[in-house]
Design a binder for these strands. Structure first.
Lengths: 114, 114
DNA sequence: TTCTCGATTAACCATAAGGTTAAATTAGCA
DNA sequence: TGCTAATTTAACCTTATGGTTAATCGAGAA
């Protein structure tokens, strides 16, 4: 999980993923829009590979990369667990209840039923 | 966006967020379950703050931290853009199992040709 | 055999992460 | 006038990131 979010924490790599969503790409093709060296691109690809987000298929000289999206499901779920906190209604109600509650004990008042 | 995924890329910080989802916590309370120093916890909190995921309220000695989930929406959307690539894989598997075709293709590619 | 060329490895650099300990900050309290 | 206690800041260490250039690899082509 660390590796997945780590992989996503760089704009270059997020762009590479978007690129790969369009279809297979070689290292050079991934490097080109960023104006970076093959070495730099290769490192990014390696990090995406480590996170399980990229599959590499070596065809002669070229290393052809494919998106491997499955691991994103876990990351998606992790963030999705907080969805109710940003989707407004519940959040606002919760805020209201918290403001009204003068007995600010450190109790789990933020979560369970809301 | 970088900062958000960066903040999420550490298990300690993800746990802190889960903790904050239960209610407000001081730096010390956030540090305690991880057996780490206040200094270390303070650094993590600072990163969460930089990512906009945490709001700090100084009450006398204690820095009381609150979850600020709104920025997660963008990260959620970013990952969600790939949803079809992993649900598609499941669809494909489902179809494979239902068809019970003689061609035992064990290479579930993320369906496009591009 | 030798050339080509996409990619990797090696070496290096600067900066950031994640942790530590020691010292400074700070506002109420005795 | 201090004392207390939760945090922060400062200084330091080790490892990881993100980039570079130079050298190496490997298999098809000439």
């Amino acid at each position: 999980m660390d590796d997945i979010f780590q992989a996503l924490s760089d704009a270059t790599r997020r762009q590479m993923l978007r690129d790969l969503a369009q279809g297979e790409r070689t290292i050079g093709q991934l490097a080109q829009p960023h104006g970076m060296s093959l070495v730099a691109a290769s490192k990014h690809v390696k990090m995406l590979e480590r996170a399980g987000l990229l599959r590499r298929e070596i065809r002669w000289r070229s290393h052809v990369c494919h998106l491997q999206a499955a691991p994103l499901a876990a990351a998606y779920a992790e963030i999705g667990a907080y969805e109710r906190f940003w989707t407004g209604a519940l959040d606002r109600l919760d805020q209201l209840l918290r403001d009204e509650d003068s007995t600010s004990e450190t109790s789990p008042k933020h979560g369970d039923t809301a």
